[in-house]
Design a protein around this nucleic acid. Sequence first.
DNA 1: CCCGCACTAGACCGACCGGTCTACTTGTGA
DNA 2: TCACAAGTAGACCGGTCGGTCTAGTGCGGG
Lengths: 203, 203
Amino acid sequence: MRHMNAESDTRSRILAVARDMFHGRSYADVGIQEICEAARVQKGSFYHFFPSKRDLALAVIDDMADDWAHGFVAEAFDPSLPPVERLDYMVDAAYYWQKASADLEGRMPGCLFGNLALEMSTRDDVMRARLNAVFDKARDQFRATLDEAVARGALAAMDTEATASAMLAYLEGVILLAKTRNDPEVILRLGPAIKTLRIEMAH
Amino acid sequence: MRHMNAESDTRSRILAVARDMFHGRSYADVGIQEICEAARVQKGSFYHFFPSKRDLALAVIDDMADDWAHGFVAEAFDPSLPPVERLDYMVDAAYYWQKASADLEGRMPGCLFGNLALEMSTRDDVMRARLNAVFDKARDQFRATLDEAVARGALAAMDTEATASAMLAYLEGVILLAKTRNDPEVILRLGPAIKTLRIEMAH
DNA sequence: CCCGCACTAGACCGACCGGTCTACTTGTGA
DNA sequence: TCACAAGTAGACCGGTCGGTCTAGTGCGGG
């Protein structure tokens, strides 16, 4: 019964707990001891699976990016939807996610990636690169959507890559503001304006 | 010669050093001991001026907000400029500021307020409120600019308050993305699209 | 049956954390 | 001249940090 799960249960328990804690607080603010207690695991086990706290964070990023890509991002960017509508779905998804946390814990955790990006970018280039990759993937989703909308004539020609980046930035910014206000409704109020962003092709 | 400066030199040295360190790294990552060393001050002096690390952070926020308001924000929102141009000035100001840091230290520190907002919002409501006030002031600058542009007929009628919030969010988001890429040029590339943001009046 | 290995348990480490405390220095007003 | 208070110096505090290490434990393959 020991090796029953691919990727042992202990490891995934640590990962899940760490994800929630890093998301709800910050990297520096959460200690390994605290993670171990919450995951009902001893230090020895922890360091058996993760060589360091930093490696845990890296694993959390990968784990969350995976869930994210297969979870609501995949849903929001549902190809059967008209492209422009997908943008609204993305905003809605962000809203409901944050609202659920706010209702449950009284706090808006914001975006794990955005949080970690601001906290760690100046301190750890490997983590920064990892976060960049996540943002690149998100931007590509936006870009594909915009490309399709342009191809269908739903939107005028534009620099879809730059506009996609702008939309991602806007979404992160809206979540940042909403978190600071601790009010998910901000996402609902400001989010839809994501569709008004536009960057023209260079010359 | 002791009380020559309003707000003693020691206090302002601590403040300046702490500001840079919090800005370039993070609140949790910077220790009081480290601040004291950089400011060439002893613990005793530190705690003479600041009751706690948290109060120092609060003071740093106020201090920076002040500099900010009287510094490039005041310049960028120069009332003698056509309103719409002020938005470009604001983006440019953000760019040059970040670029200067990047050239000097090799790292984009991003926006101190945005950084602290994401790090502390879920942990300290007083700090969150302080940061909110800073964001409110910034939004009001955007709003006044938009109001003026609408009054002059340079822009069509819109919900200027919501649009101002959206612009602030976008600016923060762009800076977040640029910091994650560690590339100030991102601000130059995405920033100008701030003018395309628009939220209509509700019904 | 028992060896080896993945895993767990938890004591332990030095460093550093934010914060306190006492002693001292020094300029100022009476 | 002297008392006082603002400010400085730095030893010290308990607690926690990330991380190490040794001693098991119990399952699987040979």
